[in-house]
Amino acid sequence: MGLLDKEFSDGNIVIAPVEDVLNWARLSSIWQLGFGLACCAIEMMATSASHYDFDRFGVIPRNTPRQADAIIISGTVTLKMATRIKRLYEQIPDPKYIISMGSCSNCGGPYWEHGYHVLKGIDRVIPVDVYVPGCPPRPEALLEGLLKLRDKIRHETLRKKSA
C-alpha cells in the first residue's frame, strides 16, 4: 500500500499523508450493497464465492444502503427498477461508488432496441465510476473493474472527489 515504506526508525510510528491513509482505508473495504438484477448477478455471486473471492479485496455485501460504499449494478435495469436504484443510491452515505457491470447496465445490452421496459444505461440515472463490458463479464473482468475502482480511489484527494 505504500504506507509501510515510510516507516520511521521507531517501529511504532508510521508517517503518511492523511489522504493516503483515508484512501487506503476506503479502497480496502469497499462494502457493496447486496444487490443483483439479472444474469450478470449470477456471475457477481460467483465472484463473491470462494473460487474468485471478492472478500480478499474487502468487498462484503451489506444488506442496507446505509452501510454500503458501492453498488455493483449487475444486470438489466428496467425502468421500474431504475427508480428504486436511484433511491438506493441516494441513501448511501458519501463517498459512494458505482460499478456498472455488463452490457445491460452499460447501454441496454440485448434490449437496446426492442426492450420497451429497459433503461438504456444506468448512467442515465446515476453517475458511474467503472464500466465492465461483457454479457456477462467473467469474474476476472469484474475483478479487473474492481481494481480499476481501487486505483481511482487511491488517487482521490480530500479537496475533490474524483471517483
Binding site: L79, A82, T83, C107, E113, L119, K120, R124, V125
Partner: peptide
Amino acid sequence: FYQGMKVPY
C-alpha cells in the same frame, strides 16, 4: 420519456 428517464436508445 418515463419519469424523466429517456426510454429509446
